Amino acid sequence: MWNASTPPATSPHEVKEIFAGDTPPPPAALAAKVRTLAPSMTRSMQRVAEAVAGDPAGCAALTVTGLAELTGTSEATVVRTARLLGYPGYRDLRLALAGLAAQQQSGRAPAVTADIAVDDPLPDVVAKLAYDEQQTLADTAAALDTVQLGAAVGALAAARRIDVYGVGASGLVAQDLTQKLLRIGLMAHAHNDPHLAVTNAVQLRAKDVAIAITHSGSTGDVIEPLRVAFEHGATTVAITGRPDGPVSQYADHVLTTSTARESELRPAAMSSRTSQLLVVDCLFIGVAQRTYETAAPALSASYEALAHRHRSAPR
C-alpha cells in the first residue's frame, strides 16, 4: 500500500516520457508499472492506481465514470492515470485489466499475498518472501528498458575505468558488480565512502563510466559523485527504483528497478536489493558477451587462481 500522505516527487507529466511508449504495455507488465509509478503520482491518481492493481477484474467491468466514482476522483483523472501507465486511453487500460484478471484466474499471474505478520509461522514467512522475490524479479524484468541496458553495456565494454557508487545495501550491490567486472578483466572500483567517491570522480573522463546505485533515487552521497563524473565527461548510469528522482538528472542511461511491497518486517533495503542484483547480472552478462574474446580467458584465469589458492591452503 502506498502512503497517500507522502507528496509526489514529481508531476505525472515529468515521468510520462520515461515510461510511456508507442506500444501499450502487456497485461503482465501493468502491475509492475503501477508499483513503479505510484509514488510519483498525485494523490487522486494513486487512488485509481491502487484500485486497478487491487481488483483488475472488478475495474475492468467499470466504465470510466464508474471507476471515477469508485475512487472518488474524476473521469479526467482516470484517463490521465491510464495514459501515465502507457495506455492511449481508458479503453486500452480496461482491456489490459481484463487480460490481467484472466491470467490471475488461470494461475499464471498469482494474486498479491498479504504482508508478513509478526506471528506468521516460518513456513508462511518463507512462502511470502519467495513470492515477493519472484514478483520483484518479474516486475524488474518487465520494466527494464533494454535499449538503455544495451547502451550501458556498450559503454562498460569499452570503458577505460569504471567507478560504482552505492551506500548501505546498495553499496553491497556495487561491490558485487565491481567484483564481477574485475573477473573479466575490466578496471572497476566500488566506492561507499562519499569523500573518496567524489575524489575519484574528479579523475574520470570521456572514456570512463560511473554508475550510481540508489533505490530511492535521492541518496546524496551517491548523487554527488555521479554529478561530478557527469560534469567531467564520463558516461553515467543510474540504477534506481525512482527514475524520476534527482539521480536521473546526471545519468546518461537510467535502469529502473522494481521492489516488493515494503512492510514493517521487510524494509526497502531488503526488497530493492533483489531487483538491483538482477540488473547487475544483466549488465555483467551483456558486457561478457560483448568482450567474450578477452572476458573468457580472464574469467578462466580468475577461476584457476582461486582454485590454486584453495589447493595450496594449509589444511
Rank of each mutant, 00 (worst) to 15 (best):
Q179L: 03
P225Y: 09
A269K: 07
D145K: 07
M41S: 00
T257H: 06
I18V: 10
E133W: 05
A51P: 07
N192M: 12
A143F: 00
G89M: 10
H13I: 04
W2Q: 00
I211H: 07
T36Q: 04
L204V: 01
L84H: 05
T235G: 06
H13W: 08
Q249N: 13
A101I: 11
M45C: 10
S302H: 11
R290M: 12
G21I: 08
V118T: 11
T199H: 06
A174S: 08
D92G: 00
I223H: 07
V228K: 02
G166H: 01
Y131W: 15
Q46T: 05
Y90I: 01
S218Y: 13
D221H: 12
E224W: 15
R108D: 15
A158L: 00
T36R: 00
A29M: 02
P27D: 08
A127Q: 12
H189Y: 01
Q148Y: 07
Q134W: 13
T146M: 07
P123N: 02
D281P: 08
A268E: 11
A169N: 03
R273W: 06
K207C: 10
A142T: 09
G171A: 09
G185L: 00
A190P: 03
K207V: 05
I162Q: 02
E14Y: 00
T6D: 13
L255N: 03
L255V: 10
Q46M: 01
E50C: 08
V147L: 01
G166P: 05
D139M: 03
L70H: 10
T77I: 15
A157R: 10
T113H: 10
S218R: 15
S11D: 12
K16T: 03
A206M: 10
A76W: 09
R83F: 12
G72E: 10
V78G: 09
A49L: 11
